[in-house]
């Protein structure tokens, strides 16, 4: 029997910072600064997270089980060994999918009301 732990109630809907961090981690493990850069790139520079927001969200997501800290560090010759790397957990992947679906439904409503083509 496979056991999947339920997603905590206070996780969904997510804060924009949490959603962006999870999205940044969707294609592999990253350290804090790499997450920050990816979020900035993914949002065309609209979202610029400070270190406090970044690590405050990371702390919360670690506690909720959405992300995990990677035990293995990359080769110190390739990267700073003091950096901490994070990756999505199984629950984090599920929560990210649910949140993306929720946002998609909202966008569908906006599309239905012609918000996006400016004809309303």
């Amino acid at each position: 029997m496979t056991f999947t732990s339920p997603i905590p109630d206070d996780v969904l809907p997510m804060t924009p910072a949490m959603f962006n961090i999870l999205l940044a981690l969707a294609d592999g493990e990253k350290h804090g600064y790499a997450i920050m850069l990816e979020v900035e790139a993914n949002t065309q520079g609209v979202v610029k997270m400070g270190p406090g927001t970044l690590y405050g969200s990371i702390k919360r997501m670690l506690a909720s089980g959405l992300i995990e800290e990677c035990a293995e560090r990359p080769d110190p010759a390739l990267d700073d060994e003091r950096r901490r790397y994070y990756r999505l957990s199984g629950m984090g992947q599920r929560a990210l999918r649910l949140e993306a679906e929720r946002l998609e439904r909202q966008v569908s409503v906006a599309r239905f009301k012609h918000i996006l083509d400016g004809t309303s």
Partner: peptide, 8 residues
């Protein structure tokens, strides 16, 4: 998180 925050 002080150390990674400082690094970032």
């Amino acid at each position: 998180y002080g150390s990674p925050m400082l690094q970032v």
